[in-house]
Design a binder for these strands. Sequence first.
RNA 1: GGGCGGUUAGCUCAGUUGGUAGAGCGUUCGCUUGACGUGCGAAAGGUCAUAGGUUCAAGCCCUAUACCGCCCACCA
Length: 738
Amino acid sequence: MALDERLLKPYDPKATEDRIYRQWEASGAFAPRPDAPNGVFSMVLPLPNVTGTLHLGHAAMITIEDILARYARMRGKKTLWLPGTDHAAIATQSKVEEIIYKQEGRTRHDLGREEFLRRVEQFAAASRNIIVKQIRKLGASVDWSREAFTLDEPRSRAVRTAFKRLYDAGLIYRGRRLVNWDPKLQTTVSDDEIEWQTETTPLYYLKYGPFVITTARPETKFGDKYVVVHPTDERYTQFQSGQKLTVEWINGPVTATVVKDEIIDREFGTGAMTITPAHDLADSEIAARHGLDSEQVIDLVGKLLPIAGEFSGQHWKKARPKIMAKLETKGLVEKIEANYEHQIAVNSRGGGIIEPQLLEQWFVAVNKPFDDQGTTLKELMRRPVATDEIKIIPERFTKIYFHWIDNLRDWCISRQIWYGHRIPVWRHEPKCVPIVGREKEIEKCQEIVVGEPLEKCPHCNAKFTPDPDTLDTWFSSGLWTFSTLGWPASPAGGPDQTEDLKTFHPTTVLETGYDILFFWVARMILMSGFLLGQIPFHIVYLHGLVRDAGGRKMSKSKGNTIDPVTMVDKYGADALRLALIIGTSPGNDSKISEDRIRGYKHFANKLWNIGRFILAAVGNETPARPAAIPAADQKLIEQLDDLTREVTVDLEAYRFSLAAEKLYHYVWHTLADKIIEAAKPRLLTDETEQVKWLLYTLFERSLRLLHPFAPFITEELWSLRPRATSSERLITTPWPAT
RNA sequence: GGGCGGUUAGCUCAGUUGGUAGAGCGUUCGCUUGACGUGCGAAAGGUCAUAGGUUCAAGCCCUAUACCGCCCACCA
């Protein structure tokens, strides 16, 4: 009997995996099977950013999703797992800016918009190529024929259409509001993109007429003309609300007005503060409540405006000590508390310290009713989760989701960066007409066009100028579950339903990290709900973050990332996958070490040797079912029946770790250690045929059960069965019956 | 300030509806067993953070405490 020569050697993932992947791809197994008998399974790959390459966290995510996809496929479902990448606007732009500055000492303004964008696109393309290779290496059974990019033409059309529909419904508006301004990247960012860092700074107690006020930012205080105290604070009962008094301030006397507001914490400092509504959200809300004026003090690059008098034109950082010196000379400094701890806002996308600014931007209104029932976008996001139409795993994130929605303010979607979708709005040249309050003129003359570009105004022939800003990257990724399925079928209204959309939307499950629950998951529910009247997915499965051995988040800047491809090269993709899945649980972070991956390489080796033994014992013919099966053998079959049921239930319940662990344990410690050992002597007796059948049956079943977890080695062993043909691939073999 | 998660073997972590504790790595002893030394056989090692409670039965449920971590929040 001639054993396949591959079985003579130890298992070599390097010589096997790429070949198997090519076979899968060429066979069309990754595409949805048109005649699949048991319904539909669809899922999108959480589009990796083209800011770099994949790390082990991505690998864990891909593993979980591939398990889902392969299991669904084997269950006979029409299975679509759709891949793609995200242009990640601000993250990619700031990354490329950084590289160019480091290598050439030039800024994006030195290069100009066109050349800079060319560079970014180059970078994005290179990054995308690496990512695609990495995804393949991991064995991901994604349908490459449907690969998408958030910035390609079909997705751009979806963005323009979505913008127009939201605009026409009055849900996108232009407004002047206090926004998060990043002076370093020169753009606004949304509330969610802000990271709070603890900073230790002096706290200044300054004399403000009869009051002593506290501040951490004396350089913003030039325009302060309101002093706020708590209404019931007995220290200030002699001052009436609205009372005016003249106080000596930094650049001379100012008229101060007393305001009483319950937001004031009487215990803090002296219980009195002055407000800077133009550069502080809390202050601006106080100002809004009492109808107070607001004056800008700091400009968009961080320099003081003429209101600062002699300090005008200086950067606030440099001006602060000089201002303090002047206050000192004027005798206005009561005391300075040295180590005051407070939170400062930082742009988490590689940007600078946020300076709130009052700017005109585009917003999505989340609290504005848009239909007869008075539905708001907020409710649209809340309802499907509240009614369990969308189920979040693990469940505790449901509460976190609601809490976020309840605190949500209008979403600032315009960015002043260059890379990304242009805001699909065009205005008359040379005059850019402000929109708010001038809707009538717009109707008459089309001073503004939204959605698809228009060269000239059909009414007065004036040329149109595009809005200079770009969109928040999450605007386009929010459309992902349906923009990838051909939405919109036609930009000018028309039927929205493409065949793909009808078949695959809503998608079955969204598997992603809990860190983008708000950024992405919520936005998808919003977009899908408003534009399609559908939920985007039925289940949200949230995985934890993969951290390094020290528990730190992996990131390039910390230098603690592990390249998944390096691990695949060393231990094989199957081993890496098992290491990433076993011992993890949804929503909880995990730490990964190379030792763990090596351990599962040993398992792959074990499985390979089980295959060598059983296939060699079985020979060239598939063993026939014996007429009589000994009771002991029957028990072993039933034992595997039980395991099959358990593993199936675990997979249906998204308990991947448990399912994999049970299979691991069975294959090693039952099939190999007990069953094979017991079979060895029997093979030499007249029970040979019965034993061959038993071993082969258990082995064949084990391969099927293990395939979603360790696809490469199981597929390879499958192809080594007696009389195996190249068209009978394990990937498309039915899951064992339960 | 509010909410959430964690605390299980030397290390890193699992533990599905409550029923005599598991994995990887590490440690000790013995094995050229013809699938595998990337292995086999055996072993050591856990009062499952602490204190109460519910239960025939608790790592798992309830209450409180301690420490670690995360998220959210308009204390200047």
